[in-house]
Nucleic acid binder design. Structure first.
Lengths: 199, 199
DNA sequence: ACATTTGCTTAACGGTGTTAGATTATTTAC
DNA sequence: GTAAATAATCTAACACCGTTAAGCAAATGT
């Protein structure tokens, strides 16, 4: 009887529906307000059946991250295949990575734990810029000889901040990597960028 | 009567107790499982009084972030004051920033939205490394002439990843900054690091 | 001594993730 | 075709969450 397969196909379909519904909700309302009952509403079932397809809510998130990684790998691969020169290849791949992050914002957030919890209110917090301003000033002074344009200093600052914040994030999320290597990466990067400032 | 002041001081004290209790819970159990009732338990009150000191849960988090920024600014400042040479100053300041992030892990997570939601399970996900491996290989090829040591390639990879991930995070969290500048930072950084690979 | 304010608690509302039990629909067996 | 068995789904509940309203009891002002 082919009905077994038809039923299996239907099961797979609602499994996909659950994932799609979850992603739709997140796109509309953010990760914070994703709930099992909302997913159930969207697929026109009640909440408990979701547990026939996923162990729990985290199971859904985990499957979505998995899909995110697969999509990312695909985009990076096609970028790679469009170049032969190694340096060009590498640049294209990183740009593909970058583009993925913004094309699939929600997935990227999930994959790398970038949270936006209470960020509207954070804007009106002067303390948030105390440290930044100090660093900004020093960068400006280093470049002073050349009367740097405002946005050039800004770019240097963000370059610095990105690399440090990126390293930190990676270490906080995938905690407990090689501590010594991190320190070397950090110092290398800082020295490199400082040298690069004066180009 | 000085009792007014004594009472005011007591109020300030329980305000601090609330913040301390919250941070303690987070240190022990993570942000996910911080609840008003747990805070209340720890300060030996019931949940509703917390609302006499903070508008809501987000208010507590916001005050903790504020304190985080102030501490960070302090550490960066003292780092700055210990050097005169500008380049050394800048390096020390970034290292202070780095150290802050790990000394006050929980605060840093709060301040910059680095979430660790469901990360234990993510380790056992082979798809997570598909894209990484491809990029890793290209870096290795670029450096091939020099028979690079394993950990040197690794360092380069993380340097790349950090800067891109950092830039992305910053843009996802403080969304909608200058798009053009971001692209320039990105390309600059990539080109810079590629050049730097062959040193 | 009475009235008022203050500090704090209990009870509740609507929401969450999740589980157990009842119910309905579908398939299987005779 | 009807009865039994199985699958699919729902309702109800549990324990928790953030938050608010009502009430009590002690301290205070007069």
């Amino acid at each position: 009887m082919g009905s077994k397969e038809r039923i299996a196909r239907l099961k797979d379909e609602t499994r996909l529906n659950i994932l799609d519904a979850a992603l739709d909700i997140v796109k509309d309302e953010g990760w914070q307000s994703l709930s099992m009952r909302k997913i159930a509403d969207k697929i026109e079932y009640t909440a408990p059946i979701i547990y026939e397809y996923f162990a729990n809510k985290e199971g859904i998130l985990l499957e979505l991250t998995r899909r995110g990684y697969i999509i990312l790998a695909g985009e990076v691969r096609t970028a790679m295949q469009q170049h032969t020169d190694l340096a060009e290849q590498l640049e294209a791949m990183w740009i593909a990575y970058w583009n993925f992050a913004f094309k699939y914002k929600e997935l990227y957030r999930l994959m790398y734990g970038v949270d936006t919890n209470c960020c509207e209110l954070k804007k009106s917090m002067p303390e948030a810029e105390l440290a930044d301003d100090m660093i900004y000033d020093v960068i400006e002074k280093i470049m002073k000889d050349e009367k740097p344009a405002e946005d050039l200093v800004c770019r240097k600052f963000y370059t610095f901040w990105s690399i440090i914040h990126g390293l930190i994030s990676i270490n906080l999320v995938n905690k407990g990597r090689d501590e010594e290597m991190n320190q070397r990466i950090l110092k290398d990067a800082i020295k490199g960028i400082i040298k690069y400032i004066n180009d």
